[in-house]
Design a protein around this nucleic acid. Structure first.
Lengths: 204, 204
DNA sequence: GTCTATACGCCGATAGAC
DNA sequence: GTCTATCGGCGTATAGAC
C-alpha cells in the first residue's frame, strides 16, 4: 500500500545529482577569477561540493579537459549567437552593433564568460588549441568587417586594422568595467563605446 | 699523460660573474613568454646558466620578489620617461604622441617589457601590489589627459573614457603585433594607430 | 660565494573498497 | 557512482659542505 511512496524519495531537497555542467560552471568562475594555473582541483571540488578531487575525474579525465570543454562551449555559443545576428541583420553596422550589445550584456550578466575570453591565456596551457583569432566565432566577425568594407560602410583599410581599432575600444571598455576602473555597469558605457568604436572605422 | 687536460676546465671564456640584473632580465623574458605561474626557478636557473636553483636565492629571497622588482623597475623607468616627455612638450597631443612613440618602439626593441605590462596579471601573485592604473606612471598619463580636456584639446568627456578609447586602440595594436596577428613590426602600424586613437578623443 | 643534498608541501591523477 | 587511500612528481625553499 505504501509502495507508491518510494517514488518521492527521488531527491526531495537537494537533487545532488552532480552534473558535468556544474563542474564546468564552477571551473569557469574559478578560472576567470584566479586564472587556470592558480586554480587547483581542490578548489574545483570545493566549489562543486564534493568531498574529494576524485569526484571531478568522473566527468573529466584531466584539468586541461575542463578548460578545453569550457573554451569550446563558450566559442561555440558565441559563434551561434553571431550566426543569429547575421541572419537578422544585413548591414555590417547593425551586425557589429548587436555583437557589442551581446558583449556588454554578458559583461553585466555573466562576467565570468567575458573574463575567461579576455583574461585567461589559454595558449599557456592548451598548446594545440586554435588561436582565438582563428576560431569560427572570430572568423565570422572578421568576415562581417570585410563585408562592411566591401559595401562601403567601413573605411577602406586593412580589415585587421579595422578589427583592431573597433575591438580595441570595445574590449578595453569591458576590461575596465571588469576591473572596476569604470565604476558603473557595462550597460552604462555601451552606447558611448559603440559610438567611439564605430566612429573609428565608419566611412566618412 | 693526459692529466694536463684537467686544467682547461677553469673556464677560460665566460667570466660568469653573475649579477642580479642577469636574473632579472632572464626572468622578465620567461615571465613574458610563459607567464609567472608557468615559469619555475628551474627555468630561471637554466636561462641564467646556473647549475642549481640555489644560486638564484643569492639575489632574491623568493620568486615573488623577482617579479616585484621587475615590475617596479619597469614602472619606474616608464614613469621617468613620461616625466621627460612632459618636460619636453607642452600640449597633450604632443605628450601622448611621444608616449605612443615610446610604446611602439619598446614593442619592437624590447617586446618582453610590453608583454609583461600587457599580459602578465601581477595581481594574481602579488596580492598587495599597487594596481597598474594607480601606479605613478599611469597617474601621469591620466593627468596628461585631464589637462588635455581642460585645455580644450581633448573632447569634454570623462577622462577615464578618453583613456579607455585612446589606449584601447594603442594597446590592442601592440597586442596584435606581439601575437603576430598583425604581421609586420609595430613601427609599421604606429602612425595609423596614433591617428585612429587621437581622432577618437580629439576635440572637433 | 657557488654547488650538494634534501626537506616538505601541494598538485594532478589512479586504484580500488563500498 | 561516490569516497578512501595513496602515489609520484614537481616546485619552492633551506641547510650546510667546499
Amino acid at each position: 500500500m505504501e509502495q507508491e511512496i518510494i517514488e518521492p524519495e527521488i531527491e526531495v531537497i537537494p537533487p545532488k545529482s552532480l552534473s558535468q555542467d556544474e563542474v564546468l560552471q564552477a571551473s569557469l568562475k574559478l578560472f576567470a577569477q584566479k586564472g587556470y594555473a592558480n586554480t587547483s582541483l581542490t578548489d574545483i571540488k570545493d566549489a562543486v561540493g564534493l568531498k574529494t578531487t576524485s569526484g571531478v575525474y568522473q566527468y573529466f579525465k584531466t584539468k586541461q579537459a575542463i578548460a578545453e570543454t569550457l573554451r569550446e562551449n563558450i566559442l561555440d555559443s558565441l559563434s551561434i549567437s553571431i550566426d543569429d545576428i547575421r541572419r537578422r541583420n544585413r548591414k555590417a553596422s547593425e551586425q557589429l552593433r548587436e555583437i557589442v550589445d551581446l558583449l556588454f550584456k554578458l559583461t553585466d550578466e555573466a562576467p565570468e564568460i567575458i573574463r575567461f575570453l579576455l583574461f585567461v591565456k589559454t595558449e599557456d596551457f592548451l598548446p594545440n588549441a586554435v588561436p582565438l583569432m582563428d576560431s569560427a566565432a572570430f572568423n565570422k566577425i572578421k568576415r562581417i568587417i570585410q563585408n562592411g568594407i566591401k559595401e562601403g560602410e567601413i573605411k577602406n583599410i586593412d580589415y585587421l586594422l579595422a578589427y583592431c581599432y573597433f575591438f580595441g575600444i570595445i574590449n578595453q571598455s569591458l576590461l575596465m568595467v571588469l576591473d572596476g576602473v569604470l565604476p558603473k555597469s557595462a550597460d552604462s558605457y555601451q552606447s558611448q563605446a559603440w559610438l567611439a568604436a564605430w566612429g573609428c572605422i565608419a566611412k566618412k
